[in-house]
């Protein structure tokens, strides 16, 4: 999954926030706050990381077991999808239909 372009991750006074840039304000007028681990995942999603990559990275970075990591990542990705913060996953879905 890849988060949309035009969403800037910033650290403000120790808080992680995502701010929409330019035309992206049309879709998202406001600010999203992230935890430190959320920001860690967001940076990977900017590069288009898949769920397994996110899990591996989280396990390497944080003292957490795999089941918890997968569960947390699943919820995080769901939230991103629900808020339309990721690029459309059309190609993958089309592949699955075939």
């Amino acid at each position: 999954m890849k988060v949309k372009s035009g969403l800037m991750l910033r650290e403000i006074a120790g808080e992680w926030v995502v701010v929409p840039l330019g035309a992206r304000v049309v879709e998202l007028n406001g600010i999203i706050t992230l935890t430190e681990s959320g920001a860690f995942l967001w940076r990977l999603l900017e590069k288009g990381a898949e769920e397994n990559e996110l899990t591996a990275a989280l396990l390497k970075e944080y003292d957490i077991d795999e089941a918890t990591a997968r569960s947390d990542i699943g919820r995080f990705l769901d939230t991103i999808r629900q808020n339309s913060l990721c690029e459309a996953e059309v190609a993958k879905e089309a592949g699955e239909v075939k």
Partner: peptide
């Protein structure tokens, strides 16, 4: 990931005052 504009705004301002 959390929402609530007033809460977010106040939290950031509070931390910024401290920093």
């Amino acid at each position: 990931m959390s929402g609530g504009w007033a809460k977010i705004y106040q939290n950031i301002i509070n931390k910024s005052i401290i920093e």
